[in-house]
Design a protein around this nucleic acid. Structure first.
Length: 485
RNA sequence: CGGGACGUAGCCUAGGGGCUAAGGCGUCUGCUUUGGGAGCAGAAGAUCGGAGGUUCGAAUCCUCUCGUCCCGACCA
């Protein structure tokens, strides 16, 4: 495991792949387009998943599980939905050695099968709201895949809720968007912009799609989560009516929302450096690694000292690894654990032992701090908090530095770089521009610069006055344009 | 799905019709070391991505195919 990681400046894509493979987060699989999530990558996902799960339950949702296979006819009940997903479906045509009368598709998302059940479960306003979440795998036959960011099969959660009123459903849509924003910013330390998608970028079957958009280190945008207001589209498609408080039959109002293993990719791309993975302490499988440094004559004492510290920290609730493997030098271990992304390294040598201290080294900054051994637990906790905040602050500063108000088409082209249009060359960032609302303008910009409308930030729609940066017509929205993953 | 590049040991690379496929890193054994990817000695590890063809002979030439990366189209 002595391979060097390709520096970001040389090849950002290769850098990302090098980190994923060298930190043993995932591996390519024999199945085209699907990856194997290795234990270290899965542990990070579990830490993300557990926090979301806690927050979903806190907001009144329950987990359930629906089938992997969906009758093809279900997809076809919602016109926009099938049109959006048909090109990326995997279809099962045979079972038990016989051709199936009706083919199944492997779920690309579960609105249809879930709403086919909601039809039976909802009769009265007393049955509402129905707040269900599912942790599952889904499959979308992607033509071009990237580890974690876009694979044919991926893990996610999908919330599917049913409500009495449009108001309730709209509130739920925004409530869950806010849960996403909060968890991604605080737990993953990835700053995001909550906003609404344009018509051309919204979910197939939704009335409105809300999103949280993050900026990666190559200044491209990554959609980190979406929350959809589905109106009565699926209720109508599956004929789900309830008797309201006035005794009238009415279609149910719906939302759906999801985040996926793509978030692992977002964390990697946001925080890591040329030495390897950098993880927020909240997500790291281990709190710290102790690396003992000794000569033959000091080995026993240093190991004993290290062992005591490990036990002490463990008893305080930290997950601490003692790397006492004799076959690797300390230098090797430093590099190795840096590549794995462990937030804090604790060095213990004879000199430290004599002075009753240890050296704590921050993964994010490389800063070395001498800590009296009695204070190790308290300082480790403090360091974790500092690192968590520093990672978020650094990412936010980076994003803000590359978020620029742009008011004319010429400036947009200059910002994204006309000469780099049609290439993956990193240029630009987030262009914050006024927009008239027309899909034609989005298409024009995309054709010239590859940049798309990522979202209209929720908190920046007030006082819109001016002209669309693309066509010059009176503006109706403020939007973020960027190249994206 | 279109264009390009590339598949030789776990990883990187050499060899582009001819003897037993070469080297570096890593791995294993032993000794020696240990404050930023240590040293010495020895060992294991390859049907050259796969299939078919041309040839006396194929890692090498041809055809097909699979995979990875990049670009494009498509897209949660």
């Amino acid at each position: 495991m002595a391979e060097k990681i390709t520096p970001r400046e040389v090849d950002y894509s290769q850098w990302y792949i090098d980190i994923v493979l060298n930190a043993k987060l995932a591996d390519y699989s024999p199945v085209k387009g699907s990856m194997v999530i290795r234990p270290r990558g899965y542990a990070i996902w579990e830490n993300i998943r557990d926090e979301f799960d806690r927050r979903f339950k806190e907001t009144g949702h329950e987990n359930a599980y629906f089938p992997l296979l969906i009758p093809m006819s279900f997809l076809e009940k919602e016109a926009e939905h099938v049109e959006g997903f048909a090109p990326e479906l995997a279809v099962v045509t045979h079972g038990g050695g016989e051709k199936l009368e009706e083919p199944y598709c492997i779920r690309p998302t579960s609105e249809t099968i879930i709403w086919s059940m909601y039809r039976n479960w909802i009769q009265s306003w007393r049955d509402l709201p129905l707040l269900i979440n599912q942790w599952a795998n889904v499959m979308r036959w992607e033509k071009r895949t990237r580890l974690f960011l876009r694979t044919s099969e991926f893990l996610w959660q999908e919330g599917h809720t049913a409500h009495e009123t449009e108001q309730d459903a709209r509130e739920e849509t925004l409530r869950m968007l806010e849960v996403y924003r909060d968890v991604v910013e605080r737990h993953l330390a990835v700053p995001v912009i909550p906003g609404i998608k344009s018509e051309s970028e919204k979910f197939a079957g939704a009335v409105e799609t809300y999103t949280i958009e993050a900026m990666m280190q190559d200044r491209k945008a990554l959609q980190a989560g979406t929350s959809h207001f589905l109106g009565q589209n699926f209720a109508k498609a599956f004929d789900v009516k309830f008797q309201n408080r006035q005794g009238e039959l009415e279609y149910v109002w719906a939302t759906s929302w999801g985040v996926s293993t793509r978030l692992v990719g977002a964390v990697i791309m946001t925080h890591s450096d040329d030495k390897g993975l950098v993880l927020p302490p909240t997500l790291s499988p281990e709190s710290a690694v102790i690396i003992p440094i000794y000569r033959n004559d000091s080995k026993a004492a240093v190991l004993e000292f290290s062992n005591r510290l490990q036990q002490d920290l463990k008893s305080q609730g930290f997950r601490v690894i003692l790397d006492s493997d004799d076959s690797n030098s300390p230098g090797w271990k430093f590099a190795e654990w840096e590549m794995r992304g462990t937030p804090v390294r604790i060095e213990i040598g004879p000199r430290d032992m004599q002075s009753g201290q240890v050296i704590m080294v921050r993964r994010d900054s490389g800063e070395k701090i001498a800590v009296p051994v009695q204070e190790a637990g308290a300082r480790l906790k403090m360091l974790h908090e500092e690192i968590q905040h520093a990672l978020y602050a650094r990412a936010k500063t980076f994003r803000d530095e590359h978020t620029v108000p742009v008011s004319s088409f010429d400036d947009l082209i200059a910002f994204f770089g006309a000469e780099s249009a049609g290439t993956a060359e990193a240029k630009g960032g987030f262009a914050e521009s006024l927009w008239c609302g027309s899909a034609a303008c989005e298409a024009t910009l995309k054709e010239k610069t590859k940049a798309t409308l990522r979202c209209m930030p929720l908190d920046r729609q007030h006082g819109i006055a001016g002209h669309c940066a693309i066509c010059g017509a009176p503006a109706r929205h403020r939007a973020i344009f960027a190249r994206n993953y």
